[in-house]
């Protein structure tokens, strides 16, 4: 299995398209960092400015590396699934398209092993991509802007987390994001197993994510009641739960707490179930697949 995984990783990281995601993420993050370096105060005024009448807001202190990383993740984690689909959607269908899949399955290894190796390679890709993202979004932001308390703006609340209570939340959030992106990778894998070319699964994954995200975010009671609970995109935002801090009866924040840990665990459970569902379906389909190309 280890050899199979190594081969699959070699195949992924040999393709130029793999590095599109790394380049896109770096460019996007650097652009945000530059913008916030120059106009950070204005951006914060746009978000929090209406509180100016009631409070003295220390914009310069809020515009720190920790907050900038949160702002980047808020903007970027919606788009990263598209970059994951770019690689994971190609993982089986790409071989079918090139004609190497038939050759591959003729080797003395089970189809299940082969597909699991491909899935694990996609997982490894997700982890490397998120590590890269963490390095630039968090590491570089801290280097450029320093650290400080994080102020998280929700629609109806403002949460402040003290700086020495922040770092573990990022580790947890990136861990959660990895799981969320593995769901995308497994969906792409499923679509990839039933397709003979790469474009189909990639585009289909992107379309599914866009439609599901729209439904999750539209705030329409009909969808909220009957659709939203069943969409994996609803649970992909769970990483933010680590930045919603718990408060005591007096309304003061409790260091090291999250507002609703059970909601995060529920998200993790649902996402794991989706991964198992997609991968199992992929294996079943792949085992019965009539490989002609």
């Amino acid at each position: 299995m280890w050899t199979l995984l190594q081969i699959e990783l070699y195949k992924i990281f040999r393709k130029p398209r793999t590095y599109i995601a790394f380049g896109a993420i770096a460019a996007f993050i650097l652009l945000i960092q530059l913008a916030l370096l120059v106009n950070g105060k204005q951006y914060l005024q746009f978000v929090l400015g209406f509180l100016d009448d009631s409070f003295e807001i220390p914009y310069d202190k809020i515009n720190n590396g920790y907050w900038i990383c949160f702002a980047i993740l808020n903007l970027l984690l919606i788009h990263v699934p598209i970059l994951v689909a770019l690689v994971a959607g190609d993982i089986v269908s790409g071989e079918a398209n090139m004609g190497t899949l038939r050759l591959l399955v003729s080797k003395p290894i089970s189809r299940t092993q082969l597909l699991l190796a491909k899935f694990l390679a996609a997982v490894a890709y997700v982890i490397v991509l998120l590590t890269w993202m963490a390095l630039i979004a968090l590491g570089l932001s801290i280097a450029l802007f320093g650290t400080g308390d994080v102020v998280v703006a929700k629609a109806m609340e403002l949460h402040q987390i003290e700086q020495h209570d922040v770092l573990w939340r990022y580790f947890a959030a990136f861990g959660f994001a990895a799981l969320a992106l593995v769901v995308v990778a497994s969906l792409s894998l499923l679509l990839s197993t039933v397709s003979e070319n790469s474009i189909g699964p990639i585009v289909a994954t992107v379309c599914i994510i866009i439609v599901c995200t729209l439904i999750s975010e539209m705030q329409i009671p009909l969808y909220d009641k009957y659709l939203k609970p069943y969409l994996f995109t609803t649970y992909m935002l769970g990483w933010k739960g680590f930045f919603y801090i718990g408060v005591d009866d007096d309304g003061q924040t409790i260091r090291g707490s999250v507002q609703n840990a059970s909601a995060i665990f529920k998200c993790i459970g649902v996402l794991v179930a989706y991964v198992i569902g997609f991968v199992t379906a992929s294996v079943l389909l792949f085992r019965k697949k009539d490989i002609l190309s």
Binding site: S54, I78, A153, K154, E217, G241, Y244, N260
Partner: peptide, 17 residues
């Protein structure tokens, strides 16, 4: 003043709170 931001900006996670 009343505090309210559009959810389209904040992309809130609905944690049931």
């Amino acid at each position: 003043k009343e505090y309210k931001l559009p959810k389209g900006i904040t992309f809130d996670f609905d944690d049931g709170a």
